[in-house]
Amino acid sequence: MANNQQISINDLSFTYRHDSNAVLHHISATAPLNSIIGIIGNHHAGKTTLCRILAGIIPNMMAGDLSGDVQLGPLSPTQNWPALNQQTGFVLQDPASQLSGLADTVADEIAFDLLNHGVANTEIQHRVTEVARQLQLTGQLQRSPNSLSGGQLQRLAIATAIVTKPAILILDDPTSEMDPQGRTEFFNWLTIIEKTTILIVSNEIDDLCEIADRLWLLVDGELVNQGTPLEVINQLKPDWQIGTPQVYQLARSMNWSLGTDLFPVNVNQLRGCLHDRHST
């Protein structure tokens, strides 16, 4: 049954054209709208392909053999792509190739999306300033996008994706080139965005466990587990070869459990766990 309040993926399989092996095999997953979903897995797991399907790049711009069904709330990337795209922000793995190349300045690059949405010039002014402040690009607004460092380019790519205030944000490894402060600030900032569904692919398992409401774990194109970070991390199998957060490593070694064989995966859970131990 389609539910307007959740993301649901139903028996999704995909094979790229000119390729004989399927990249995704019979994936089914759900998550409520307006939550943060972390997508984890190693290379060849199908994370990028899944992002492309969620954003409608597949099948609207890249061809292949797609079966199954995807619903993002009331919309579907296969059936109502233009309407969905209007409400979606996307950040590619390679931020440099995401830029229009038609802007002399960072400000113009960010304004590009607003112009496309038909936003009035006075409003553009306001929104660009606001988003540049959020992503610490204010000092770079008048500079050429070509002069930015890798981390700044990633922040610019994110700025262009969020400036239109999308209801759905799809981020494919958006922090790989950021320095630690930039990355920490970015993950903290994700938690304060309201009324937005965020799907984020990342190798930063520690940060994901701090902020994600749910994790989807892909191994070789199959969704092997989904649930809260606490569930997914505690149920990892060694042959999936997934790294664990430091909180979990620490708690496990010190045997600070949250009850039956369940170890905390983020700082809050660890705090709660230690508090309970002291009070009993």
Binding site: M61, G101, L115, N116, H117, G118
Partner: peptide
Amino acid sequence: FDQSINRSITLQLRGFDRPERTLAT
């Protein structure tokens, strides 16, 4: 070529050919 394809994909995602696009001054 790869970069060009990526760019054309993101431009479509960013809605560069929408009818409601504000004309540049």
